[in-house]
Amino acid sequence: MASGERILAMEGLSKVYRLGDVEVVALRNINLELESKLFVVILGPSGSGKSTLLNILGGLDVPTTGRLHYFDHDLTAAGERELTRFRREHVGFVFQFYNLIPSLTAIENVALVTEIAARPMPPAQALDLVGLKERMHFFPSQLSGGEQQRVAIARAIAKQPDLLLCDEPTGALDYGTGRVVLEAIERINRELGTTTIVITHNAPIAAMADLIIRLSGGEIVEKSWNERKAAPAEIRW
């Protein structure tokens, strides 16, 4: 069990979407505190609100009610400009569909982020961390899905973020490739101490986490701690 200072605090967080005339409650009354350096897995079926939660934590979205603190900063009150700065300085994102810039090579995709970061690591080093040093001059179209996702991870961590947010990082990948990607994420968490939050509907992945949070219908239904974290290689799905 790792521990550190309190990095994120959610207090009565709710999110309501308006879709035409219908109100959809995506999150209701989320209360949660997370400490730094943790590996957190948020589990839940589709529609459980996990993506909404991740988006709010990453400054892509704002809650309808409730409060969100990042260290001492109140993100609830943050405007568009502040959220952009928050993302730029503190958050690394990994998405299901990688979202690489197709016109930039692997290393350029990473450099895209390091160029605007305060204390980045060299892009080549970031690619090395995910085992892609050899392919750093390849364009996304020349890489496999797993490799593209690892570039995305390198891109996310190259700025040495405080928070690594991964939205279904293995969702578009087969088992073998997915495992390599999970290894990369696990390694970042372990070696760099980056607080990592992975959301997935894939329950076995939870075995990797320090803390597992189960969401259902927009509410936290369970919070549990792993005594022993499993290595990615041990996980089967």
């Binding site: 990453g58 892509l60 400009r81 952009t84 700065r85 993302r87 730029r88 300085e89 958050v91 994102f93 979202n99 690489l100 810039i101 895209l112 982020v113 605007i116 891109r155």
Partner: peptide
């Protein structure tokens, strides 16, 4: 949109 998420300003 990807760029915006990565923290690029408008």
């Amino acid at each position: 949109a990807s760029l915006r998420v990565l923290g690029f300003t408008k």
